[in-house]
Nucleic acid binder design. Structure first.
Length: 586
RNA sequence: GCCGACUUAGCACAGUGGUAGUGCAACGCCCUCGUAACGCGUAGGUCGCAAGUUCGAAUCCUGCAGUCGGCACCA
């Protein structure tokens, strides 16, 4: 999808369109006061205080009509440099603009005027409002002033603007198409997961198709980890509150945990993460420097009390299974183990054909003394280490201040879903803090007890989220190794060809493929249509021709071509598809 | 959690005050068929839940729940 922020021409056009929106809103709502109206990846928006009024759906059309009027009036958009004093006087009735101006440097302030409307802005803009012709207001919502939930909620209106009608329509069509690949739709259509109000929101249940995909993903990633020396464990999905007080999670996240429950004279919580359990496993025995790194992995069920508004399909849920592991290493081993994790991430992405992702290096905000473990030296050390390893590996990344975990900095891999904002898929976190809090140790070569360093890492993030992402990536056309049903055998005529179809079906089943025989008394076209809708990778069409020549004809979902081969060749083809994990959706 | 919208059969939807409809799916009959829907028929819904207004509520009001679009949050 086009990025309005990155495309210079669209950026200016959309920024100007935000002003047009503000002008129209000012006409319709004279009491309106304006906060900011930036261009973002998805277009532009403007945050507006309408006093007691709120935007409703029908208001959008009304505002659009007014915008068209403002556009048609063909006013020149005129830039003017103003002094800070002038600016403060000009916008004296708008506390939001005053807020902005007060933080601006004198001599570096400008405003733009179009007809009866002037907005504070650094520009640049298009020359005339008539250039803003092909736009659409796409969505609206409340948005907290300065992004702080304690502040007043302003009205935010989103829109997009293009130079031509064709581009606008193409974009709107693309938006509609993206909705079709939303994992919630695919998950329902292909019977992958369900939710039940009675069980609880944000607690998905995986249906047979979904659990099959789950098992394949789980076995795949555990196999990769075993090859790298990981040992997998199984730990309970709850823990004593003291465990989380020791780790520090209780102080930081107790509001985001399910409340504690008292049993006899102990208190427990459903666990929100697995680090403390794995720390206890580490401390179950005495370790020598020779034993390190120790890599403990687990597909571990966690429960987090996510706010109702943040839940989304199987992407953001209240119960989920992390593809978690904790690597206990000596300080000298950090670099090698961290590289190894990054390489594993890249290897998995490459194998599964995931190409649209980016790295974020999440660092602490040094001014935030509450959230982050107070040890400057530790933080500087950890952040420098991660940065150096990333630079050595030569990967592009952006640094995000204030995004670190409370115990350490991390590398996050960000991806964009079909619908909604970016999220983290994989993560690798460096932690000097929890090993100290749990008093972990190993005996070093000099005979002294030292504290290990821990790398927290998740390749799939959670199996749930990864599945959501991969369903959207593949549009539901799963590669053969993941497809719940790999082959649908369709006899042309049930009366004459069922016997041959059964023979082939049994042969494929004996080879270990997930195969189904459609022996219903329906027309060929009808049965093929169902296979296509269910996105089954291979349709095997068996009629007189195939029975006579002892061959099979196959068609891949998403293709209209039919190929005829021998059964042996077909099996070879399938096995090749499965081992290569090849995607065929693109 | 906050702002707004939505919730009708397994699925996709229509129906804005007069005791529920269409298409697909399901089931039955018919058809016996070569690459995305043969035809006919049958069954299926306390219209998200609760309370209210009304002679009468899927429709109007209120509350609750869930979902969706954003905001906030995300160890």
């Amino acid at each position: 999808m086009v990025d309005f922020k990155e495309d210079e021409k669209l950026n200016i056009l959309n920024h100007s369109c935000a002003h047009l929106l503000a002008q129209a809103v000012k006409h319709l709502y004279p009491q309106a006061k304006f906060w900011v109206g930036p261009v973002v990846s998805e277009g532009f928006y403007y945050d507006i205080d309408l006093g007691d009024e709120v935007i409703k759906e029908e208001d959008l059309e009304k505002i659009e009509r007014e915008m068209k009027k403002c556009s048609k009036s063909a006013k020149n958009i005129i830039r003017r440099e103003i002094s800070k004093k002038e600016a403060l006087e000009m916008f004296k009735d708008d506390e939001y603009k005053i807020d902005l101006i007060e933080r601006m440097e004198d001599g570096n302030i400008s405003c733009y005027t179009q007809g009866d409307f002037t907005d504070l802005c650094r520009g640049p803009h298009v020359a005339n409002t008539k250039e803003l012709k092909y736009f659409k207001l796409t969505k609206f919502s409340g948005a907290y002033y300065k992004g702080d939930a304690n502040n007043k909620m302003l009205q935010r209106i989103y829109g997009v603007c293009f130079p031509t009608e064709e581009e606008l329509n193409a974009y709107l069509k693309e938006l509609e198409e993206m909705k079709l690949r939303d994992h919630r739709k695919i998950g329902k259509d292909l019977e992958i997961f369900m939710v039940s109000d009675l069980v609880g929101k944000g607690m998905p249940m995986y249906l047979p198709n979904g659990y099959l995909i789950w098992e394949m993903l789980e076995n795949y990633i555990k196999g990769k980890e075993r090859a790298l020396g990981y040992k997998h464990v199984l730990t309970p999905p709850l823990g004593n509150v003291e465990l989380y007080k020791t780790s520090g999670h209780w102080d930081h996240y107790k509001d985001n945990m399910f409340p504690k429950m008292k049993v006899e004279d102990e208190e427990f919580v459903l666990r929100p993460m697995n680090c403390p359990h794995h720390m206890m496993i580490y401390s179950n025995s005495i370790h020598s420097y020779r034993d390190l790194p120790i890599r403990i992995g687990e597909i571990a069920r966690d429960c987090r009390f996510e706010t109702s508004g943040s839940l989304k399909g199987i992407e953001r849920v209240r119960t989920f299974c992390q593809n978690d592991a904790h690597l206990f290493v000596t300080p000298e081993q950090i670099e090698q183990e961290f590289s190894s994790v990054v390489n594993l991430i890249l290897e998995v992405y490459k194998e599964l054909g995931i190409e649209n992702f980016r790295f974020e290096l999440s660092l602490r905000d040094p001014l935030d003394k509450v959230k982050y473990y107070p040890d400057d030296e530790m933080w500087n050390n950890a952040e420098t280490t991660l940065r150096e390893v990333l630079n050595d590996l030569g990967y592009d990344y952006v640094e995000k201040i204030g995004e670190a975990a409370f115990y350490g900095p991390k590398l996050d891999v960000q991806v964009k879903p079909a619908v909604g904002p970016e999220y983290t898929l994989s993560t690798c976190q460096l932690d000097f803090c929890l090993p100290m809090r749990f008093d972990l140790g190993y005996i070093d070569s000099d005979g002294n007890k030292k504290t290990p360093v821990v790398l927290h890492r998740a390749i799939f993030g959670s199996i749930d989220r990864f599945m959501a992402y991969y369903l959207e990536e593949t549009k539901g056309y799963l590669p053969v190794w993941l497809a719940p049903v790999q082959i649908q055998v369709v006899p042309v005529n049930i009366e004459y060809h069922e016997e041959y179809a059964k023979e082939i079906y049994k042969a494929l089943e004996e080879e270990g493929f997930r195969v189904e025989l459609d022996n219903r008394n329906e027309k060929l076209g009808y049965k093929l249509r169902e296979s296509v809708i269910k996105k089954i990778p291979y349709m095997l069409i068996l009629g007189q021709k195939e029975a006579d020549s002892k061959t099979v004809s196959y068609r891949r979902a998403g293709s209209e071509e039919t190929t005829t081969v021998t059964l042996e060749e077909f099996i070879k083809l399938l096995n090749d598809d499965i081992t290569s994990k090849r995607r065929y959706d693109k």
